[in-house]
Computed example of a mutant assay.
Amino acid sequence: MTTAFLPPGAYRPPVDRWGTFARLAASLPEGSVAVVDRTVAKLHPTLLPTLEARRPRAIVQLTGGESAKSFTALEKVLAGGLSLPRSGTLLAVGGGTVGDVSTVAAHLLKRGVRLVQVPTTLLAAVDSSLGGKGAVDLTVRGRVVKNPAGVFHYAEEGWLCPEFFTTLSETQVREGSLEAWKMVISLDASLFRRYVRTPPALTKLVKDARRLKESVCSQDPYEHQGLRRVLNFGHTFGHVLESVSHFKLSHGDGVGLGMLLALDVGRLLGVTPGDVAARAEEALANGPGVPGRERAAALLRRAPLKDIVTLLGADKKAGSAGELRMVLLSAIGTTEVHDVAEHTWRELWPAWTKGVRP
């Protein structure tokens, strides 16, 4: 079956197109709908005129960040796309949060329209713009729970425009690098060794990360077989840290710190050998530059333990009995999924709240 006859949003191998936004946008069908991060539009003044030249039905501007993954933002995108035919195109230009809400909107509009992802952050380029997943957040007992309501809707194309990466801060580069290194540490031991010897250039980092993620997604495009769980390494406690920070901690930094906590859980359970945990933590510190453990400690100390339990219980990866279904590192490039009881991770709590390695 050719991709032309696949239902909207169905799995399809990624079509990555590299180049300037102006060159790639020349192929955008007239009458499309574009969702654009306001900050990106300000940093790149030719962006909106380039889109307007394609006579779009609407250009919906959103403020990037976790607030973009709300039902309010989703409704704004849906309203902008009301007149879009089912054969139309929705273009998402922004970081991961803009891409997420656009993915949900593309799935819902006319029961599925064509989606093109244009990631403007390194984090979105290496991760969220690939793999078909989109989601919005919900608030549970006053805390924002990430991604409980979502869809699978694969983009037909991904546009990689290096010009957008030139305006990223050092912090944003670190966040994306941490997500890329997560895939290297958990999926490719030989690439890990090469990265440790010689840190990769940004373009290579993006291409390697997208290749690694696609190697997983192609085998389990809708997470029916559990193979994609490996991509959640660092996410269990990473999402908690993001939430208790009220999302002042970015997703990339949250995943970085979450990997450190996952290494601790793995060591405690005897899944992660001590030397493997040490190598991984050292690589994260020396390569992308994971924030220090004191950052995680400061966040965990500010939240009542019962709130942490609530957030973990609401995690979509939790087991039926409330146990955490965590991805743990058994060797560089190899992971295992384990159910982790509450009493296990609570044993690590004193060290975690002091900012020290257990």
Rank of each mutant, 00 (worst) to 15 (best):
87 S>R: 15
57 R>V: 05
13 P>S: 15
139 T>S: 06
28 L>V: 12
261 L>P: 06
309 V>E: 07
56 P>M: 01
149 A>Y: 04
61 Q>I: 07
119 P>C: 11
148 P>M: 00
38 R>W: 05
60 V>P: 03
291 P>N: 07
138 L>P: 08
325 R>D: 06
208 D>Y: 09
182 K>W: 07
242 E>I: 06
99 G>K: 13
36 V>I: 13
248 K>G: 05
278 A>H: 09
272 T>Y: 08
319 G>I: 00
62 L>Q: 00
100 D>S: 15
224 H>S: 13
72 T>E: 11
336 E>I: 14
202 L>E: 07
203 T>Y: 08
182 K>V: 09
271 V>N: 13
49 P>I: 04
10 A>R: 13
222 Y>I: 13
218 S>E: 15
303 A>Y: 00
334 T>L: 14
122 L>W: 02
237 F>P: 00
20 T>F: 03
12 R>M: 15
304 P>F: 05
148 P>L: 01
159 W>E: 11
332 I>A: 01
78 L>R: 02
308 I>Q: 03
251 H>Y: 09
339 D>Q: 14
178 L>P: 06
325 R>V: 02
108 L>P: 00
263 L>I: 04
295 R>D: 10
59 I>L: 06
37 D>W: 10
51 L>G: 07
200 P>E: 11
246 H>C: 10
14 P>S: 03
155 A>C: 11
230 V>W: 08
59 I>D: 03
280 A>T: 11
117 Q>S: 15
203 T>H: 13
96 G>W: 05
22 A>L: 03
42 K>A: 13
272 T>H: 04
99 G>S: 11
197 R>I: 07
170 E>N: 11
347 E>D: 08
85 P>H: 05
108 L>R: 07
263 L>V: 02
314 A>T: 09
342 E>A: 10
349 W>H: 12
134 G>Y: 05
278 A>W: 04
343 H>T: 14
152 F>C: 10
255 V>R: 02
231 L>I: 05
213 K>V: 12
284 L>Y: 09
179 E>A: 09
219 Q>K: 15
235 H>W: 02
278 A>C: 03
125 A>F: 08
287 G>L: 05
180 A>L: 09
276 V>N: 03
159 W>A: 07
34 A>G: 10
254 G>Q: 04
93 V>M: 09
150 G>N: 02
331 A>G: 12
252 G>I: 06
5 F>D: 09
6 L>D: 13
203 T>Q: 15
